[in-house]
């Protein structure tokens, strides 16, 4: 937290704190030019964002989280490799109709499918759980640690602080996805054949094109997580307990995932933020089918708009007591 405080609140006044006008440039936290009148530059927001990023990614728990995320593709890859080492196919021991999770059986065709298999396995629970931890902790964790009020002392404004927090959570979405994808790609290339890739439509494409599609998929997976990040941020503004916010976010995720599997509730399914998550698989068809992807992105945008603005409404009108 100390980085944030030094970056954002170098001149914290004592006593009851009131956020001051950042439009008043003399109070802006730029030690090099304390007296020069200066318009607020976008860099100001960026420095807040940078300090948020630094806080997020320098934490041991973030690094441990990313380590665990990177470990899962390795485990999947090794497990598939052991099972199919003798020439068998995935799921051969469980009867022919058992197909297993998406893309598992194709990992033996080409190692790049380990990327898709890992993302398809981790997108429903692991990845959003990690996002829930980061996003849920973002505001509530500061409140819990008693550092939120000092952050607000800085003349940054609550909206900007919230945006910086959310931007940092989004960066974590991307970094987490990329960590998984890169780990899977590396393990897949080591254990399984590479070369031309047969897409799920049966069409053969070059490894380069498949890599391009993998990059698109990683981007789509990261964007799929923006909805739960906004949700986590909103929950985080509701409480002063970081643990409670994380637990609520992850609990909500699990509830939504369960509801999404109950066929009797199919009417609400299209509105659940997890419903179109696996649409990224449509990128592996030939030609690419964008319908589901577009629906997914639209739904995520809606969640970001609704819960982002709810978080803003809550955070900008709330009494900060801790």
């Amino acid at each position: 937290m100390s980085q944030a405080e030094t970056a954002a609140a170098p001149t914290a006044p004592a006593g009851p704190v009131k956020a001051t006008e950042p439009a008043e440039p003399t109070r802006a936290a730029v030690p090099t030019a304390p007296d020069a009148p200066r318009p607020v530059s976008p860099l100001w927001t960026l420095s807040l964002f940078r300090s948020e990023l630094a806080i997020t990614f320098r934490r041991w728990r973030t690094i441990a989280l990313l380590g665990v995320l990177a470990l899962v593709p390795v485990l999947i890859g090794v497990a598939v490799w052991i099972e199919t080492r003798d020439g068998g196919s995935v799921g051969a021991g469980r009867g022919g109709d058992e197909v297993g999770p998406a893309f598992f059986s194709q990992v033996t065709n080409n190692g790049i499918f380990l990327v898709f298999a890992s993302l398809a396995t981790m997108l429903p629970i692991f990845l959003p759980m990690a996002i829930g931890v980061i996003a849920g902790d973002s505001v509530a964790g500061e409140a819990n640690g008693g550092t939120l009020r000092y952050l607000l002392v800085a003349p940054a404004g609550r909206t900007r602080l919230l945006l910086a927090k959310y931007a940092a959570a989004l960066v974590f979405c991307l970094v987490a996805t990329v960590v998984v994808a890169v780990a899977a790609l590396t393990v897949g290339a080591m254990l399984f054949p590479h070369g031309d890739v047969t897409l799920i439509s049966g069409t053969r494409v070059s490894y380069g094109e498949a890599l391009g599609r993998a990059a698109v998929i990683a981007g789509l997976v990261a964007l799929s997580l923006t909805g739960i990040a906004a949700l986590g941020l909103f929950i985080s503004t509701l409480t002063s307990s970081g643990i409670a916010a994380m637990a609520a976010t992850v609990g909500l995720l699990i509830t939504v995932q369960i509801v999404n599997t109950i066929p009797q509730l199919h009417i609400v399914h299209p509105y659940l933020f997890t419903h179109y998550w696996l649409s990224f698989a449509d990128v592996l068809r030939d030609p690419i089918l964008w319908d589901g992807v577009v629906k997914n992105l639209g739904l995520q945008a809606l969640y970001v708009a609704v819960f982002g603005s709810a978080a803003w409404a809550r955070f900008t009108t709330r009494d900060i007591t801790a």
Partner: peptide, 14 residues
């Protein structure tokens, strides 16, 4: 404990 109430800042001074 002192309460920090939200105040108007630049980006929403309308």
């Amino acid at each position: 404990m002192a309460r920090i109430r939200p105040t108007q800042v630049a980006e929403d001074d309308f």
